[in-house]
Design a binder for these strands. Structure first.
Lengths: 125, 125, 125, 125
DNA sequence: GTGGTCTAGACCACG
DNA sequence: GTGGTCTAGACCACT
């Protein structure tokens, strides 16, 4: 499993794992039905405690992204609509800040949009 | 001072103040040379602790957005390049996540860009 | 044997089997003296491990619902009073919770009783 | 805080706490806006680890029953519709079993309904 | 071998 | 003093 964790980040480790899986799903690196590494396995790979991985998985389970089962391990859900209930408020507020900073740095709307657009593509290949 | 604080938000209050001022600056509500309310005054207005406002101001001072002076109070800096040193890493990571969720929700690139573009305009008036 | 197993359920498979037989008995689908499929047979039908079926049968035997005999196979007991020793505590606690949630959802006592009553009938046909 | 925990129960402690609060809310013992004991406090009162209480609170937060905030402690939510998203499937399946056992024990529908009805009232005073 | 539950104890962020 | 995060390690239930 190919998750890169930045231990110096102020983003909690469990949140980095969560995002890595969501982004991997959006990129197509991970697909519905895929079996994820067990909490113990991923914890060992990353070099962290299994509870931290467990927390990330639990959050993803709550968002309908995966299912955890003592019997079969952790699987990416076949759910057609993962993240449906996800509250975008928090993340939109981050976007407001990003736009404000971009303006203060003197970026034009066109350049800003171009950057975003590029990010979208990068997330695609 | 027109800052709206959401006490239920998971965003720390000092961070809400900081963002409010940055966004106000980008929108043009606040301009270089403007005198900000004193720490004590703003704390009283919002109904929070002195230290909380002080922390927000200190962060803005570190970003070159304002200057605190015991004699003259807090002034928005004439600095041409505020936020220059601001670490975009954190916020870009939020953008990556936003894009991934947008994709999972089935949004097209065009619609996504349109939303962002609208946000930019809204931040302008 | 007509047991439907939900492999995604968080209810253990052995418990689903056990409940299926108890409910079948209450509905009259199964009667005293009936011969049940052998452990091996049912395991094969469902596509699960022998031990899982065996565990379900053992529990039912402990509840006086069936008798296991190497020579005659597993038979529904003629016992007049199956489940006599069954500890209702657990299930009554579920009922307490159900009532509390029904109230929080704004259901009236009458509607709640009506639902329960209907469930009783459905379990009868 | 008046929660009675049965350490011998097979119901997890965190689940007993969760139910205690839901039932307390339905009975009116707890009201919107009430401040709950801190996780540490309740853990100490019960004589368990704070993480166990924390887990119960987190589940209730996910169901919209309470809010946890580092700044203000844990408060019963003003949410008009707690438990709205709660999946009743699990609990209804318990009810099916309860009905089957009641039948096997020879209870009449009328007696069964009477018991349920009494439980509803008991939950009310 | 998997996740589930629980304990114990540490340090941090916020106000 | 509150909850948030993380670690470490135990035992259990299920297949």
């Amino acid at each position: 499993m190919f998750l890169e964790i930045d231990f110096k980040s102020d983003l909690p480790i469990y949140e980095q794992i969560r995002r890595g899986i969501i982004i991997g799903l959006a990129r197509g690196d991970i697909k519905a039905g895929d079996k994820l590494p067990s909490v113990r396995e991923m914890a060992e790979n990353i070099g962290i405690n299994l509870h931290t991985v467990n927390k990330a998985y639990k959050l993803l389970e709550a968002d309908g992204v995966l299912t955890m089962d003592r019997r079969y391990g952790s699987l990416i859900s076949e759910n057609q609509n993962p993240m449906a209930a996800y509250n975008l408020g928090k993340i939109e507020s981050e976007l407001d800040l990003l736009i404000a900073i971009a303006k203060l740095k003197g970026l034009s709307r066109e350049d800003f949009i171009k950057n975003i657009s590029k990010k979208w593509e990068d997330n695609h290949d």
